[in-house]
Computed example of a mutant assay.
Amino acid sequence: MRNLVARACRLVLRILLPAQGCHRRTVRPACVPAAEPLPVPVPARRRPSPAHEELHRFVEQQIQRAIEQRRLQHERRFALSEAVAGRDHPYSYPDAPFPYDAFVP
């Protein structure tokens, strides 16, 4: 008797409240996956403004200066470590009274 009542209730519910959503047995057009979205258009590459180019040159100069300063600092530290060890190192700098060639035999 219970099975008969449950089947009758299920039949009435299916008629009054049809299944909705993608997990039902019958496939309807609403369950078809949506089409892929259109790709976002990429804007054309623009020429940099003169201010941007000037800033870029300024930054490049600052980078070159920093690289040169680090190289000189490394050279000074190396010369100091050689002096502490008691060895001569041909260290020279711009406008030095003794050129680099004076140290090379």
Rank of each mutant, 00 (worst) to 15 (best):
A96Y: 02
A79F: 02
A79K: 01
F103V: 01
Y93N: 02
L80D: 14
A102I: 05
S92F: 03
E82G: 03
L72Q: 12
T26L: 12
S92K: 02
P48H: 03
V42F: 00
R77M: 10
R70D: 13
Q61Y: 03
Q64K: 13
Y93H: 12
Y93Q: 13
F103G: 15
N3K: 09
L13M: 06
Y91I: 04
Y93K: 06
L4N: 08
V5Y: 06
L38S: 09
L11A: 15
A83G: 07
L80I: 07
P41V: 12
C22S: 13
P18E: 06
R24L: 05
Q61T: 01
D88Y: 10
P97W: 08
I67K: 14
N3T: 04
F58P: 00
V42Y: 00
Y93M: 05
A102S: 11
R46I: 03
D101S: 14
L80Q: 12
A6N: 07
A35W: 01
R57S: 07
P90V: 03
Y100C: 05
E54A: 15
M1C: 03
D88E: 11
R71H: 12
A19T: 10
D88P: 04
I63R: 14
D88V: 12
A96R: 05
Y91E: 02
R77C: 04
H56T: 08
P97D: 08
D101E: 15
D88S: 13
I67P: 00
E75K: 10
E36D: 10
Q20M: 09
R70A: 15
